[in-house]
Design a protein around this nucleic acid. Structure first.
Lengths: 105, 105
DNA sequence: TCAACATATAAATGTATATTTATATAATTA
DNA sequence: TAATTATATAAATATACATTTATATGTTGA
């Protein structure tokens, strides 16, 4: 059975969307979507400062979008749920289509 | 054929997500999701000031999430694509599940 | 325990954005 | 055309948030 519209809580939804509304956080999510990665690896791959990455990882953790796991001196982050990725894909596709539709008028 | 991850543009995605990251804008989207409604109707239903509604409608229009149509003195807004709603439903469901999973530990 | 590395946090700064208040524009009708 | 209604815009304010710089904490191995 599917969720009905009126069961949706705009507050919860806004909280999640806010976390997804930053380009760097999205890049981090994609970065850790295939496999867990250490902070230093993410820093290297995304070419952003370590404190900035740490700050965004903290936000992503607070929003429960990533799982954290310490292993020795390294801290590994990974996507907490694969649906995150599929939702972002759908949103991206929608964005593309909206843009296409606009241009074609 | 589905979209691949690497085709996703984080910038476009962040732009859309930013527009969805406000509780009042989400309420407006739900408000106009079943039928087109005039600004004054939205104002009345959501109990927000008219300039605030107008401001958010402008943002929603800028992000192509709503369509606008003038009819006499009234301006009607409606959801531009039904996928918006289904994506929001999925995101909401995900949020609920993430929360449930967290509490159960 | 000390040195080196990995990550997190704090303070400071700049910028973006939500909201309110006041006013302007646009359309209708008398 | 004046008055009224509907909506949009502008200015002002407050707040939230991203980023940088500096520093602290935690872990490992010598």
């Amino acid at each position: 059975m599917n969720k009905k519209i009126n069961e949706i809580n705009p507050q919860t939804l806004a909280f999640l969307a806010k976390c997804l509304a930053d380009e760097n956080r999205l890049r981090i999510l994609f970065c850790v979507s295939k496999e867990k990665k250490s902070v230093s690896t993410i820093v290297e791959e995304l070419q952003l400062s370590q404190p900035l990455i740490s700050h965004h990882l903290k936000e992503l953790k607070r929003s429960l979008l990533v799982n954290v796991e310490r292993c020795g001196p390294f801290v590994y982050y990974e996507l907490s749920d694969d649906r995150i990725l599929s939702i972002l894909e759908k949103l991206s596709e929608l964005g593309d289509d909206l843009l296409k539709a606009r241009i074609s008028f």
